[in-house]
């Protein structure tokens, strides 16, 4: 029989992996509603941003994914952000999850994400459109 992965509760997370991505974490939406992180839908983010006075949702399209030069545990993800298609690169742990529009949580290494966080996750790919935030009235 296949061995079950160790439960993430109580396990030490990598320092750059926030605790709120662990399956079962309670997330408060802008309207006060509480949901588990694994139950969040695209609409939850959109509706929360609509309520927010200072944040707005932006579309960030994955343009490139490559391994980090500093560590095999990290990946560099390049996004094209918003209507200006500004290029933004972020260096994240390969298991760091991003929320893809209409799809849900995705990471560069979904197997590690599931192992560490138990968060259902698909493979992040070039062309995926992720949810990101910017400030309203950014000038």
């Amino acid at each position: 029989a296949p061995s079950a992965p160790p439960p993430p509760s109580g396990a030490a997370l990598p320092p750059s992996l926030p605790p709120y991505f662990v399956k079962g974490s309670i997330i408060q939406l802008a309207n006060g509603e509480l949901k588990r992180v694994e139950d969040l839908k695209t609409e939850d983010f959109i509706q929360s941003a609509e309520i927010s006075s200072d944040l707005k949702i932006d579309s960030s399209t994955v343009e490139r994914i490559e391994g980090s030069r500093t560590s095999p545990d990290f990946a560099v993800v390049q996004f094209s952000v918003g209507e200006h298609r500004s290029q933004v690169s972020v260096e994240v742990l390969v298991e760091y999850p991003f929320f893809v529009f209409g799809q849900g949580w995705s990471s560069c290494c979904p197997d590690r994400t599931t192992q560490l966080l138990e968060l259902p996750c698909t493979k992040l790919s070039v062309g995926d459109v992720c949810i990101s935030l910017t400030l309203k009235n950014l000038k």
Binding site: I26, I27, A30, D58, G82, H84, S86, F99, T134
Partner: peptide, 25 residues
């Protein structure tokens, strides 16, 4: 007796990367 521990509640926006695009104009 085990005292109930408070469950942390995280705001929705902490889950979303804050990618502020650079404004060229």
């Amino acid at each position: 007796n085990v005292e109930p521990r408070s469950v942390p509640v995280f705001p929705w926006h902490s889950l979303v990367p804050f990618l502020a695009p650079t404004q060229s104009d």
